[in-house]
Simulated scan of single mutants.
Amino acid sequence: MSTPSDQIPPSTPPPPSPPPYEPPPYDREPTAASSSNDDKNLAMLTHLSGLILSIIVPLVVWLINKDRADKAYLVAESKEALNFQITVLIGYVICWILTIILIGAFLHVVLWILNIVFCIVAAVKVSQTGTYRYPFALRLVS
């Protein structure tokens, strides 16, 4: 008579797990580690330029470097700054329209202060950690 242990096949070790998925290079998010120090400084200045020149500098940096694969980090940061400055410009237009009912002047000052604060925070974060994503911005340029 056979025992239950005779009927169970010997256990085999489980097959090895596949290596973790690593996306191809073109799918990876560009990082500051893969960029040069000059790109990091230019990205910081691109974020800071929103204080004075609004969308001009981020647009120029993005248009010059958008087709260069070695400048992926700089392109990503300039698009982020450009999207934020476009959002701020739309806010200024809305504030200008709302000045008819007098709240626009107050909102204009608030938006101006927020622009200053977020541009400085973005520049500091980019100089320290390498990347920054604004908490609210319309992603119009992708």
Rank of each mutant, 00 (worst) to 15 (best):
S34V: 10
R133K: 12
I52D: 01
S34M: 13
D6E: 15
I116P: 15
I94G: 04
T46M: 01
I52Y: 01
R28F: 12
L63D: 00
T99P: 12
N83R: 06
L48T: 03
Y92L: 09
T129W: 03
A69S: 15
L42W: 02
L107T: 01
R28K: 12
L82I: 03
E77I: 00
Y73D: 03
I56V: 11
Y92T: 09
L45W: 13
I86G: 00
S34K: 12
I94L: 11
S2L: 13
K71P: 00
P4R: 11
P135L: 08
V57E: 01
S127V: 07
V57T: 03
V75E: 01
P13V: 08
D38C: 13
R139D: 09
D6V: 06
A32V: 08
R68G: 05
P135V: 11
N65F: 04
N41T: 09
T131K: 11
L51I: 06
T31M: 09
P135E: 07
K79W: 08
N37A: 12
P14A: 12
D70P: 09
G91H: 02
Y26V: 08
S34D: 14
V126P: 04
R133V: 10
A122D: 02
V124G: 02
E80Y: 00
I55R: 00
V141I: 08
V109H: 05
F136R: 10
T87W: 09
I103C: 08
R139I: 12
F136A: 11
V117N: 07
D38T: 11
I100E: 09
S36R: 02
T12D: 07
L74V: 05
G91E: 08
I64Q: 04
V57A: 00
D39C: 07
G104T: 00
D27Q: 15
A32C: 10
F106N: 06
K66A: 03
I64C: 08
I55Q: 00
S78G: 05
Y21K: 05
T131R: 07
K125A: 09
M1S: 11
L45D: 05
D38V: 13
Y92A: 07
V88Q: 04
C119V: 01
T87P: 05
E77G: 02
M1G: 14
Y134C: 06
A33Y: 13
G130I: 01
N65K: 04
P19H: 11
A33H: 14
A33R: 12
I55Y: 01
P4Y: 15
S11L: 15
L53W: 01
R68Y: 09
L111Q: 04
R28C: 12
I103Q: 07
N83H: 10
V109E: 03
S34A: 14
P135T: 05
T129C: 09
E22L: 14
I97A: 09
K71T: 00
L98P: 15
S142A: 10
L45C: 06
S11D: 14
D6S: 13
I90Y: 11
L107V: 00
F106Q: 07
L102F: 15
L111V: 06
Q7W: 12
F136V: 10
R28W: 11
P15D: 08
E80N: 05
F118M: 15
A76Y: 00
I8R: 06
Y132Q: 02
Q128T: 13
